[in-house]
Simulated scan of single mutants.
Amino acid sequence: MFTGIVEELGTVSAIDDLTDAIRLRIAADVVLEGTGLGDSIAVNGCCLTVVSIEGRTWTADVMRESLDKTSLGTVRVGDRVNLERAVTADKRLGGHIVQGHVDGVGSIGRRTPSEHWTVVEIAVPPALTRYVVEKGSITIDGISLTVVDVTDTSLTVSLIPETLARTTLGFREAGDAVNLEVDVIAKHVEKLALPYLSQKEN
C-alpha cells in the first residue's frame, strides 16, 4: 500500500525487452534506503517488485498485463518517473489509500498557470469518472491529488509549486499519458451496493 506522496524522481537507465515483459532499471537514491529484494516501489503509480539492486540502480520486471493497462509501456531510457516506497505502519498517511493498481490511463489536457498554482485538466476514461467526485482523492501517476472539478470525460486538479517541482506533473505536456487509480473505497462501496440497488429496481 502507498500514500501517493512521491518521494523522489528517478531516472529510467535501461529497458530490457523480454518479449512478453520488460526489465526496467531505474536510478534512484531516496527509495533505495532500507529497501531490499522483494520490496514494493510504486513507479508512476504502478506497484512493482524490486528484483535486484546494484549500487544506486534497482530493477523490476513489468509483465505484459501491466504494459497493456498502464503507461509503463511508453517509458523510454532517460525518462524521469515518480517513485514511492510502500508505506510502513508507523508512517503518516499524508495522502490517501493507494494500492498501486492502475485502473486506467488518462492524458494531460490544458494547463492553466497562475501566480501560485497551475490547474491541469486530465482526460479520464468514461468508465472511471463515476468513481471521481469533487474534492475527492485521485491518484495521477502515483501522486495523491484532490479533484477540483469533474465532468463525464475529464477532471481538473490544482498543483502547488512543491508538486510541480517534485513530480512528473511539473513537466508533463498536453497529450502525455498518465496512470490513474481511483479511490478503492468507492469501488468496494459500489460492488456491495449493486445487489441491493438491483433488488430495489425489480
Rank of each mutant, 00 (worst) to 15 (best):
M1S: 12
T3C: 11
G4T: 06
E8M: 09
G10W: 01
S13V: 15
S13G: 13
D16R: 14
L18G: 10
T19S: 15
I26A: 03
A28D: 10
L32W: 05
E33I: 08
E33V: 13
T35Q: 02
D39C: 10
L48N: 08
V50G: 03
S52P: 00
E54P: 00
G55M: 05
R56G: 14
A60D: 04
V62M: 09
L67E: 12
L67F: 07
T70C: 07
T74H: 13
A89C: 07
H96T: 08
H96S: 11
Q99A: 07
D103F: 08
D103C: 06
G104A: 06
T112S: 12
P113A: 09
S114H: 02
E121Q: 15
A123T: 14
V132E: 04
K135P: 07
S137H: 05
T139D: 04
T139W: 02
D141C: 11
D141P: 02
L145W: 05
V147C: 12
D149L: 09
T151E: 07
S158V: 00
L159Y: 07
R166L: 11
T167C: 02
G170K: 10
F171E: 12
R172Y: 12
A174I: 11
V178M: 06
E181T: 10
I185N: 03
I185F: 13
E190S: 09
L192D: 02
A193P: 01
P195A: 06
L197R: 13
S198E: 15
S198N: 12
